[in-house]
Design a protein around this nucleic acid. Structure first.
Lengths: 253, 253
DNA sequence: TCTTCCAGGTAGTAT
DNA sequence: ATACTACGTGGAAGA
């Protein structure tokens, strides 16, 4: 695998490692005390602190602190990453469209590592809005008896509608699907679609649950709702994890 | 700093290091070939590949591949992270509200490292929607002559309005502010606020720019727009980064 | 490229 | 805890 880890590397060694990571198409990881500045879509400054920095071969740069899921600062994919100074070590990542730059000034580097990565696996995800849509096409009675779904992503002047269909009386129906509990924004969205259609159409918001305010707004605009959730079980899943989630803390299989 | 890096550690050594990271309130980093399973709000599976794993002391777990800004899989803050098996090494992170779990099965661990972090610096960000709001309170004529902004986050039955004020004729005005180019969703949002108010009120969408469809929707609902961007210059900024962004590629100061 | 919308969105704030 | 919105949202799919 020929990865490399350097303890307390010099700025020159980090520069060398960054070049190597580009040639090898690998990631560069830094454990460092650094300050960060950003300018582009907005501007930000982050004073010195201990952080973990990951530079990916696609130009992504992440600066992680010791809390939270989101990086404290970052550069999206597509940036050009360079060591622009070695005393102290400064790493700059610039990208265009939009034009923006991040600058990491390292007062100390505890470790640096080269991480060649081979990862071509694709994520299989179940329980998305698309799965909910498929579920409704499979079992239209989840909406109501006699409902006939017809078109996915039906185009209207106000944007694409999730599901277009007809009720038992042949009256057109628009469904707006959400995979989780919905608020007022989803009602606005459904209303926009319904009003953009030049016909007498019913609008139904399909979601696992709905907030009080959204419910009230629905009524105000003569829209409806159905309580339906995305399918949870999709076959080939690892059952022992499900047991964990179900609350069986002692599960260790 | 007493950080520790282990090359090709045994599962037991990783377990020990995870325990140590909890006691020391530090992060644990793994460079590993692993498979990932998730179950909770949805379900997902990710087959084996080389990845970088970061476990933070607040319970956050990130699994990064070699591309993209977002982790390939993750667990948000608040999870309990444990080694639940050592042959092969399995790391499980469980959290509640919502109840969900991620499981990382490592077929090889290239490195593991303990990263004690001291980071109490706060991010200073300029150019947000709040800054745009402040700018309008400071220079109301950016909207129009005679405009008098009055209330921020003004409460309506449909939700909080960014700015409530009055025009030169004393007619109430609602502003919906966006820090970037807006689409149909922002128009829907403004419309919802305007209609929820039981008065003859003007609605103005304030943003740097607007899409065609959104523009058309605005007209349809008798709403207005003003082209205003958040302030870009906020004083104490590092000017050399701005030069970089401006296109001066040779800037190395 | 631009537009549009989903996301296991995440984060912050007020109730 | 829930509700609501902003985010340097990011990412994908279609035009």
């Amino acid at each position: 695998m020929d990865s490399r880890v350097l303890q307390a590397p010099t700025p020159e060694a980090v520069e060398e490692l960054l070049g190597e990571s580009k040639r090898r198409n690998g990631c560069l990881s830094l454990y460092t005390r650094c300050a960060v500045a950003y300018e582009g879509r907005a501007q930000s400054q982050l004073e010195s602190g201990d952080r973990f920095v990951l530079c990916k071969p696609d130009g992504t740069v992440l600066v992680h602190g010791d809390t939270k899921q989101e990086p404290r600062n970052w550069q999206p994919p597509g940036a050009t990453v360079q060591v622009t100074d070695t005393d102290p070590l400064v790493i700059t990542a610039v990208r265009t469209n939009p034009r923006e730059a991040i600058r990491i000034t390292c007062e100390r580097v505890y470790h640096a590592a080269l991480l060649p990565m081979d990862d071509d696996a694709s994520l299989e995800l179940h329980g998305s809005e698309a799965d909910l849509r498929d579920r409704i096409f499979e079992t239209p009675s989840l909406i109501e008896d006699g409902f006939r779904p017809e078109t996915r992503e039906y185009e209207t002047p106000a944007g694409p509608v999730d599901v277009w269909g007809y009720d038992a009386d042949g009256r057109p129906v628009i469904l707006e699907l959400k995979r989780r509990r919905v608020g007022p924004d989803a009602v606005s969205q459904l209303r926009r679609y319904v009003e953009s259609v030049d016909a007498d159409v019913r609008g139904i918001l399909v979601a696992p649950s709905i907030t009080d305010r959204a419910e009230r707004l629905l009524g105000e605009f003569d829209l409806e709702s159905r309580q339906v959730a995305p399918p949870t079980d999709v076959g080939e899943q690892d059952r022992s994890l499900a047991a964990f989630v179900a609350g069986d803390e002692d599960e260790r299989t």
